[in-house]
Design a protein around this nucleic acid. Structure first.
Lengths: 158, 158
DNA sequence: ATCTAGTCAACATCCCGTGTTGATTAGATT
DNA sequence: AATCTAATCAACACGGGATGTTGACTAGAT
């Protein structure tokens, strides 16, 4: 995602109005590396603009995705997470706290070779490749040394 | 996922009863490479057992996931998809028809090097790595040569 | 034959996201 | 400054997916 200022340009060029609500979403999302949900962004925007509607924030986020300025991170079954970082990178997903962390992949040359593998599938058009690491983040890995239930995949934090 | 017969053993060993409903889910899922949703499995089971409840099918699927016999595929925001193939493989996701296709990855040695990359994150415990390819499957790539809307990311099939 | 886990129906509830409507506000442009 | 029109708002309803609840009943496992 470009800077809020650049997005103002972009929106104007596309004939979209530059409203305070949209700008508030721009700055709420700018530089965020935590892959927030729409609800989180809404909460954040309301701190500065208490009357903004949920609908509008969802709308602006979808607009940003449609423009390719923001990516949707699809790594779990929870609510949609948004990623303003559209440059090439991977993700680590903590199986305990569900946090998503960026992983700069210097080894994308290796992944590129995966694309070669897909040439076994004639007619398929590969547009992107993402690598998802799963496991425990440093916080969750150090927390409960004992009392580890096995296969507790039904547990989900609220 | 093991064979329905082996799962019968497994369930008995774990003190779980081997009911016709559970066995029906076993065979409905066995050898399925299409990553079906719970609703699809429910429909399939009802062909042979019309009175089975939705609740029970969801329950059995969760049981299978908890036992590690079935994996959950988290590649989009739609309903949960189940994968009875627990061996090491990757996925291709069609951005048009949302179908998920297995990709045998002979290059997992490359991906292993990604795990090395994560050593930059002290304290993180990587448990699994998956590669997700996105693009158009052969069917969807050949269908509409013209009339391509740009950035139509809001469109979703029912 | 008994004990108890499973199952069932028929609800309700929750979450996430979107559709609707009609009134109002306020960018963009002239 | 006036106009046109997109955008926003409130206050809803709704939809899909999944789970919780209750109480009665069924049927594995021993």
């Amino acid at each position: 995602m470009r800077s809020p200022e650049a997005l103002v340009e972009r929106f104007r060029e596309d004939g979209l109005k530059v409203t305070p609500q949209r700008q508030a979403v721009f700055s709420a999302l700018h530089g965020d590396l935590t892959h927030p949900t729409a609800e989180i962004i809404w909460d954040r925007v309301r701190l500065q603009m208490p009357t903004v509607s949920r609908r509008t924030v969802y709308q602006v986020l979808n607009d940003l995705v449609s423009l390719g300025e923001v990516l949707v991170v699809a790594v779990d079954n929870g609510p949609t997470r948004f990623d303003p970082n559209v440059s090439l990178h991977d993700h680590f997903v903590c199986s305990i706290c569900a946090s998503v962390i960026d992983v700069d992949s210097d080894e994308r040359s290796n992944v590129a070779s995966h694309q070669t593998t897909l040439s076994d599938f004639p007619g398929f058009e590969v547009e992107s490749v993402e690598v998802v690491f799963r496991g425990k983040c440093s916080s969750c890995a150090s927390l409960p040394p004992a009392s580890s239930k096995q296969h507790d995949t039904n547990t989900r934090q609220k």
